[in-house]
Amino acid sequence: MAQDDPQPLVTFERVCKSFGRRAEESVLVDVDLDVGRGELVAIIGPSGCGKSTVLNLVAGLTDVTSGSVRVADPEVRSAYVFQNPRLLPWRDVQANVEFSLEQIGLSRKDIRDRADEALDLVHLGQHKDKYPHELSGGMQQRAALARGLALDPGLLLLDEPFGALDALTRGYLQEELLGIVRRFQTTTLLVTHDIDEALLLADRLAVMSSRPARIRQIFELPFGPDRALDKVVAHPEFLPLRTEIRELLRPEVEATDPGSASTDASQATAAGTRRGSRARAGTAQ
């Protein structure tokens, strides 16, 4: 598929990122990663390892310490669905979705129509005129997703976009996302904690180590471009891959155990991981 394209859309070259001056404060170390045009790359890794940081680098919200992050086509329209919804509290749902569209110079009517369409897609059509504080966490997350998808982005950054959703809605939106990405050849970088989700959605899957994080391994997934949930699960390679990735992540999770970890941040987040919950770093962002 498109990952063979000579020039990938996003290129990480020996990227190091540190928020402090000392070496032990490093978050990312020597990260190399390509995202080809039209490709969906998933990133999975222990909590607090730097997955959100990777997306922030692509979005230009933070700078590398060394190395480089390049987006080959600077004019590409990008959308970033953050780990937390980040809706504007003073705008209702409709106006929040319109926010992204307002930035690209459409007519008032186009903005409205495309926001409506995106809201219907995430099943929020009934709740357009509610304010964020009147929505559940999952509804807020869907509104944030709609804000991103409404743009018809060429580059889509998704940070655990389905984390706050029930299984049914998650399944439906995963299929929708797959459809959109396939139809519009949207280059997508997806951060997730969910191995099954990664296997279903991604063309390639990058597994990160704990902090200071490197990319441990990149998997080319064999499920083909026409994959769907039931087919992927039935695929003979599904279970072996899933086991392999789980094994790969296991020592990583233990490495962030408070007993052996050196940073406060990883301690705080490791606690959540060990409890087996969908760990969310209190320290993120």
């Binding site: 919200l61 959308a79 953050f82 980040r86 504007l88 926010f99 992204s100 930035q103």
Partner: peptide, 21 residues
Amino acid sequence: RDLVDMARAYHANETTIMRTV
């Protein structure tokens, strides 16, 4: 700051950020 970053990520310029955030 998260909201300001959100606006930046969607390519809002400084004037727009001032007005909308």
